[in-house]
Amino acid sequence: MSNIYLYALLGVGLFILGIYSLIVYANLLRKILAINVMCTGVFLVLVSLASRNHNVQPDTVPHAMVITGIVVAVSATALALILMLKINKAIGKSEFPDKDCE
């Protein structure tokens, strides 16, 4: 029972950590990774809470949702990485140019 909530809390922690890194670090690769860490956090919350009830099988709908989510995350990450490479080619660094980083 309790370790399930431990995983869920870990998910929340990853989510928060992701937001922190997304805002604090200027490097685009770090921002992209931060988004991925946030994704993992959300997935962990989704999956861990699915098996709260010990008497029955874990609910499988969240599992399917996570699989869908992973594919979405992979697609978005791929697009983001290519965009980052293009930006690097155009302005010579993988950062937003001015100080208003996101």
Binding site: F15, I35, V42, A76, L83, K86, A90, E102
Partner: peptide, 17 residues
Amino acid sequence: ALIAAMRYLLVSLLGSL
């Protein structure tokens, strides 16, 4: 446009999450 697209992508993903 690339930088605007990147910023938009990050914001959009953050919103989705």
